[in-house]
Design a protein around this nucleic acid. Structure first.
Lengths: 208, 208
DNA sequence: AAACAAATTAAACAAACGTTTAACTTAAAC
DNA sequence: GTTTAAGTTAAACGTTTGTTTAATTTGTTT
């Protein structure tokens, strides 16, 4: 199951990824993709077998470099609080770079249309939660972090806040006056990231 | 712009809503809908004009009762903290009941495929944020709540956490052993709601 | 009972869909 | 230079798509 794609295949996958994220898998035709990628319609079937298999190839292709190496964070000599801050930065940066495939996979995950194999994606998530758990229990053992925390629900809060912001982009563009890609991106990197960090910090540090 | 649908139209919209949420708008054909609703394929065009216009009708139909009357909450003689708890309960209950249309609208909002009019939806959100702001500033004036809070980003945290959990249902079913609709629903109402409340409370109360 | 509009139907429509074919071009191997 | 395989193409394939048609049924009004 080692994805070994050539340049042309990768080019097609990148074009498809962009279109799937913009218009959805069912909203994007092979003709749309071949037009955008400047290839013949037959090339998709030639390289991937079918449109469905191309989606599988795309998921496989992206999941491979989605594995966040937050294991390295654990080894560094930082306080648990500092580690959490770095982890959130890392999470947001990584997901911000890969938001197209995340959007596609979120749709497919909750869709009853196709059955995709998300086993490797699940494994990545479990590994990340394990690292997160290690950081938090470390902080709890030191008496710094609150004991009354549902660790498995912290990732949904971080990622959920981020994605909800992205999905409602037109609304937030409006109320925050973020009328260009650059300004919007900048708001995510500064204010939104700050809000998420503040939220997670408060959750871990606040004693009722 | 008053949506005045008869019983048959409402029945069709409800069936369409379920299918759109399950398989997406483009992944659902008029024949799928007419089969599930036990009507003739021509009835969709007859009642709504087209498939696209049916989606518009659905959005209009649902947005109308999406307006959360949290204004009433403001009047009650509760502490700001109690109001926030009630507001989160209210939010989650309401969105849990309407998660199908929310899922559809979230997809359409971030989709470049169709241009839908979300003006009334935007207005509802703005009204809700205004009420939220009133509660929080009340708490801030009383010296209870933290001043360093981005109020516009609180809703994304509440809703984002909820939706991320719903979108990744297969994953959380797995790690929390929620292998039935009832058990899953129950986890949302208890543990997930508790986590969200705890998070928002900490954010509002924690002083660094 | 006749007349009328509204509701419902099966059938047909053109357009778009994913996929396959068979011919052609390119590039490497011998 | 011939052979062979891989890459690329335009055209056609059979389905499925959203929509329209024209005929029929239903229910209400006169």
């Amino acid at each position: 199951m080692e994805p070994n794609f050539n340049e042309k295949q990768i080019c097609i996958l990148q074009v498809a990824e962009k279109l799937f994220a913009e218009k959805g898998f069912d909203g994007t035709s092979i003709r749309d993709i071949s037009k955008a990628a400047k290839i013949n319609i037959a090339m998709v079937s030639y390289y991937f077998g079918s449109k469905d298999k191309m989606l599988e190839a795309l998921v496989l292709f992206r999941t491979d470099d989605l594995a966040i190496q937050i294991e390295n964070l654990l080894k560094e000599s930082l306080s648990p609080l500092e580690k959490m801050g770095r982890l959130i930065d890392f999470y947001i940066t990584r997901i911000n770079q890969n938001k197209d495939i995340y959007k596609i996979m979120h749709f497919e995950l909750s869709s009853k249309k196709r059955v995709l194999n998300f086993e490797s994606f699940t494994q990545v998530k479990k590994r990340n939660v394990a690292s997160l758990r290690q950081i938090i229990t470390e902080g709890q053992d030191l008496g710094i972090f609150n004991l009354d925390v549902n660790i498995d629900l912290i990732a949904p809060t971080i990622l959920g806040t981020f994605f909800h912001f992205q999905m409602n982009r037109p609304y937030y563009e409006n109320i925050f006056d973020l009328h260009s890609d650059e300004v919007f991106e900048n708001y995510v990197k500064t204010d939104l990231t700050k809000h998420i960090k503040r939220t997670i910090n408060a959750l871990l540090l606040y004693e009722k």
